[in-house]
Design a protein around this nucleic acid. Structure first.
Lengths: 121, 121
DNA sequence: ACTCATAACTGCTTAAAGCATATAAAAGTG
DNA sequence: CACTTTTATATGCTTTAAGCAGTTATGAGT
């Protein structure tokens, strides 16, 4: 019966809250639709669930961070094209600032860790 | 009447999931108790709510990442001293690896953003 | 006719955090 | 001594980002 130790240690190391800023960055390159964003983010090594993506886009629109319009030209199902507003650009800028700070903190973390791992391990 | 624009644009730029790894790092420096960890994290520029901290520590213990023991010596209320287990060290190592990756991604983000911000204004 | 790629969206659940509050021991202060 | 503050741990309720599964629909390929 293989004494499976019940400690549930899940915790696949991962932080949350990255989808939104990455969406903003992707949209900063130019207006596009959800499905394309989905592929872009996967390509950038940030796989994201479609449900999350579409819901996030709609939430962003409610806040005035993006605006959308249907595109019925072309083939296949209609696409909803999203575009960054001025407020969206401002928000992206604050994210960039925050990320600079976070990058610094991660550096400190890693330095401290390496020092400890050397000493201890 | 101050036409308070109803776009709720909250989103104080912040990622989630950092408390746990920073706790692991702090504990890697040596066994200590929650209140001290609280002050350490605030000192490291990572302000954390006491409720979150204590609950996280208990969750970590349930998983076998840390172990605790009451310290009734000394003055003031009793302290629960936490110590990293071997599994805790392993978990910290995987976080460090993840953070290296994340740091790289943040760098890419910032480079891409600066390029766009230059071009666009 | 059938399947597949494209495209958008909903429902239910979990995980980490935010915020407020409770409890209690000891130290400091008028 | 009564009162407040500091140290220390903990719970309850809510929100938010995400995980996971599924639905609807258009058009192209076979």
């Amino acid at each position: 019966m293989s004494h499976k130790h019940h400690h549930g240690h899940r915790h696949p190391p991962r932080v949350r809250g990255l989808v939104l800023p990455w969406l903003l960055l992707a949209l900063a390159r130019g207006p596009t639709h959800g499905y394309q964003l989905l592929e872009q983010l996967v390509g950038a090594g940030l796989p994201v669930d479609p449900g999350i993506l579409y819901r996030t886009l709609r939430a962003l629109e409610e806040e005035g961070t993006v605006v959308s319009a249907w595109d019925t030209e072309g083939t296949g199902p209609a696409r909803r094209i999203y575009r960054l507003t001025d407020h969206g650009w401002e928000l992206l800028a604050t994210w960039a600032q925050y990320f600079e700070d976070l990058r610094g903190k991660l550096g400190e973390f890693l330095n401290a860790y390496r020092e400890l791992a050397d000493k201890t391990g």
